[in-house]
Design a protein around this nucleic acid. Structure first.
Lengths: 360, 360
DNA sequence: CCCGGCGAGGTAAGCGCTTACAGACAGCGG
DNA sequence: CCGCTGTCTGTAAGCGCTTACCTCGCCGGG
């Protein structure tokens, strides 16, 4: 009755959009109950072959696809994970950035893994200010959350994690939330040793990323530790502050150069984008890389290989970072697995030419 | 009863995730009915001030947020739009691309507009083969779809559009689906006229994008029309086929050069990424831009301004493309508005230096 | 003093699914 | 021939919300 009723109303009122067939329509056409339809669709029980076929035929004829909201409400699984990352706090957006590169690749990793198990990805850019309001709301539209950057203070994060599985990327582990990051220390150590031992450079500078990024902090610290141990000078100061972007880096280098500051033998950049900006600015001012100043990156983004000269950098398995984040989250969504509070992915030193090495 | 029941079960069984408070919990704590809670939350009717406050207090105390699936099922609005774009058909993914730039920026425009009305964005990359299966599924998780590239054949698209509002980007209008694109012809016309009339170049080549992209086709056609009218030679051939990516373009130029082909006075690229690759390859072979060969782009992506020399290109309001797509979709979701089958956004010629002009 | 009108709030019916439970029916042994 | 088992299918409850509809209490006017 309810069934016939709605069907009538529908075709009468809205023949266009909003008129998708329901499971009742399928059941009626197939001459079975909605339970049978659901069972066939979900492969539960052992429906008779004939039943199966009738249902499948009806599904095909009607072009029926289950409604996500109804399924989610009923089964308690939305099959959607939310991914939040920071964007557009300062600055208008015209010049804001030229490279969503890193996050974008991570997201692609997330998405690939998600699709493999039938999940979709709800992308949301959030500013740090409204994270406290937006994230809980986002949480109710998804089964779990992946947070880029460290969008939430530990306390707020822990509170959120009580209600929904949460995985953070390149942040710090917090009760209830697993953190995924790469081995910054190992990578940076290998890189600096190469510059110091193999090339014999005696002065370095670190052009930083966002100062509240754990990755950035860990990288800088590792550099300093190795440099100090080797008795190598580390030039630093407020002018050496970047923001992970090429424009920001170029700006920093230009103002350094125009201020007549002495440059180190090698500039170690917080990430590849920064290195792009640095090489660009250096080039503008007539400095050659690596002859005058060596430059290195971090991440091994696709462009790194195509720069002039090719960039020596530390490879992170960026895409894997995303896959790992999703897989961990998915495990948490499924059962109550997830042992370790943190998962660290390996990094590799990739030697190309910007450090002063020659192509083979 | 149901109410008390579930509450008890919950706190007993799952104190962690999955234990979000429901509207029943709020109602009980506030000492009102669920209808009142809902009314306060949705601002319907005129609840007494005291009722309002009790509800709001309870909501705050419990940290209650409405479940998206339940809301969607009940109200018929998911407040989510799906965005699908093509990715990873050919090639593994290691070298696949270096620039999600254009689509990414469009998506940001979509997201910004979506957030303004409380919508979220479900991102999904789809290959052309499984589009026919994945898109209908995606459609049932969202209120409307935005399709980048032309993922679906017109017939399939029209069928999909019968069930859910659809907006396409840079495609062709189809019954039931609105298309959003920019004024390719106007932009290209202005660009080619500048090269021909202002600079007097007598030979051009067009380094294409994907051959099944309507944008690409329109741009090439416009170029040919203007060139022919001016009696200017257009060099072409299978070697001039790119794929919108910098690596693809660099590869094309390199093989052209190594094949000893004569280059035109100016290379008009299908998009900015292509121009990046072209300039890079040209540089590698000792050719100067624009002295030996002029190069132009299309899109005016952020890097265009920072190239060496700065790129002359045609600006598309990329972000606006996304906003317009969302706004159009949103209108369709709301009521049955949406008159025109297509919306064309303006383009502007942006003259910088790669065409041969000098900086001011 | 009673009744109609009015407005706030409660009751309950769905939204389209999944699934526990019960019914129906066939095949079998006792 | 009855009852039991084991399959398959149907019935209906419920997921957490929104909202139509109705109740209740209060007020003013007749």
């Amino acid at each position: 009755m309810r069934n016939a009723d709605t069907a009538v109303t529908r075709t009468a009122v809205a023949p266009g959009p909003a008129g998708s067939p329901t499971i009742y329509d399928v059941a009626r056409l197939a001459g079975v109950s909605i339970a049978s339809v659901s069972r066939v669709l979900n492969q539960r029980g052992r429906p008779r072959l004939e039943t199966r076929e009738r249902v499948l035929d009806a599904v095909r004829d009607l072009g029926f696809v289950r409604d996500g909201a109804a399924r989610a409400l009923s089964s308690g699984l939305k099959e959607v994970v939310g991914v939040a990352f920071r964007r557009g706090e300062d600055a208008g957006f015209e010049d804001e950035d030229e490279s969503p590169l890193f996050d974008e690749v991570v997201n692609r990793g997330i998405e690939a893994s998600a699709r493999a198990v039938g999940f979709d990805v709800l992308i949301s850019t959030v500013s740090k200010e409204d994270a406290a309001i937006r994230l809980p709301a986002l949480a109710r539209k998804v089964d779990g959350l992946i947070l880029h950057d460290n969008l939430l203070a530990p306390a707020a994060l822990a509170r959120l994690a009580e209600h929904v599985p949460v995985v953070t990327l390149a942040s710090r582990p917090v009760a209830g939330a697993v953190n995924i990051r790469c081995d910054n220390v190992g990578g940076m150590r290998a890189l600096v040793r190469h510059l110091v031992s193999d090339h014999g450079y005696r002065s370095l500078a670190y052009l930083s990323g966002h100062t509240d990024s754990p990755d950035n902090l860990a990288r800088e610290r590792a550099l300093r530790v190795v440099a100090r141990a080797a008795g190598v000078e580390v030039i630093s100061g407020p002018a050496w502050r970047g923001d992970y972007s090429a424009v920001g880096a170029a700006r920093a280098i230009s103002s350094l150069l125009e201020g007549g500051v002495r440059l180190p033998r090698a500039i170690v950049c917080a990430n590849d984008q920064t290195a792009v900006g640095v090489m660009h600015a250096l080039g503008r001012h007539g400095l050659r890389v690596p002859a005058d100043v060596a430059v290195t990156g971090f991440d091994d983004v696709a462009i790194a290989r195509h720069l002039h000269p090719p960039l020596t950098t530390v490879r992170q398995p960026i895409r894997d970072l995303g896959s790992a984040a999703f897989d961990t989250l998915h495990a948490a969504i499924r059962g109550r697995a997830v042992a370790a509070p943190e998962r660290v992915l390996p990094t590799d030193l990739v030697i190309r030419e910007s450090c002063g090495c020659h192509a083979a």
